[in-house]
Nucleic acid binder design. Structure first.
Length: 237
DNA sequence: GCGACAG
DNA sequence: ATCTTGTCGC
């Protein structure tokens, strides 16, 4: 079992990665542990599907809170250090996101992470991983289910929510952010409670399905990828 | 053994 | 994750 932050990011295989998750999961703080929030960040990555040699492009966009006006955009690109395996997303996406995070002049007081937090087989989704590694309050914002089932039918209106239960435990919340649109699956990442996480997601949502910082990060990562691939194509052609 | 399976 | 315009419905 690796014992340094660097090795936590680069486990050699799934067996060690599982050990890392189990170890770091014990460090997750699933309750409110943050000060005044003046800026928030959204993270996302973009890459070409099923191409091990394709770069992974990351973007983190920070916004003032609660105005949500854009503040900073930080990006980073790198070869994937880990394949995509369900349940191990953090080992593929965290390294390049950590690089992008380091470039931010001002670190956000709260991070909206694409993917699950505690709603994870070992209670350590990528939102927990980034939160613990960066020691920043983080919320898991998933667009689909990894584990658990809704405790009841979800209402159709924005703000409607229902607990996601797994093995008898509430691990997250299905949250409707747009009328009739597919729900978001919110879970605590680090240093925040599920209840606060849900409220912050709602406050960051402006008529769209995804929180504003997440949308911006998604756009920025996609633009970066197309830009890089365009350059490559230009050099070849 | 069978099905599920974040991005 | 990404490929992609219009189109059906509230």
């Amino acid at each position: 079992m690796p014992t340094t932050p660097t090795n936590w990011l680069y486990p050699p295989d799934l067996t060690v990665a599982t050990e890392v998750q189990r170890e770091l999961a014990s460090r997750v703080i699933a309750e409110d542990d943050f000060g005044p929030i003046n800026t928030v960040g959204g993270t996302d990555i973009s890459c070409r599907p099923r191409d091990p040699k394709a770069q992974v492009h990351a973007a983190i966009v920070t916004c003032d809170w609660p105005s949500l006006t854009r503040r900073e955009v930080a990006t980073a690109s790198d070869l994937p250090r880990f394949p995509y395996v369900s349940g191990y997303l953090g080992f593929r996406e965290s390294p390049v996101l950590v690089d992008a995070f380091a470039k931010l002049a001002r670190k956000p007081d709260l991070l909206f992470v694409d993917g699950q937090g505690l709603s994870h087989p070992r209670g350590f989704g990528i939102a927990c991983q980034l939160g613990v590694l960066l020691d920043v309050p983080a919320i898991g914002v998933g667009k689909s289910v990894l584990v658990g089932t809704p405790a009841a039918p979800l209402g159709p209106d924005p703000g409607d929510r229902v607990p996601m239960v797994w093995k008898g435990r509430t691990v997250g919340m299905a949250l409707r952010t747009r009328p009739r649109a597919n729900p978001l699956y919110i879970s605590a990442g680090h240093r925040i409670s599920l209840e606060s996480a849900v409220e912050h997601v709602l406050a960051a949502t402006r008529g769209y399905r995804l929180p504003e910082p997440t949308r911006r990060a998604h756009d920025a990562a996609g633009e970066l990828r197309r830009s890089v691939e365009g350059d490559v194509a230009g050099l070849i052609g």
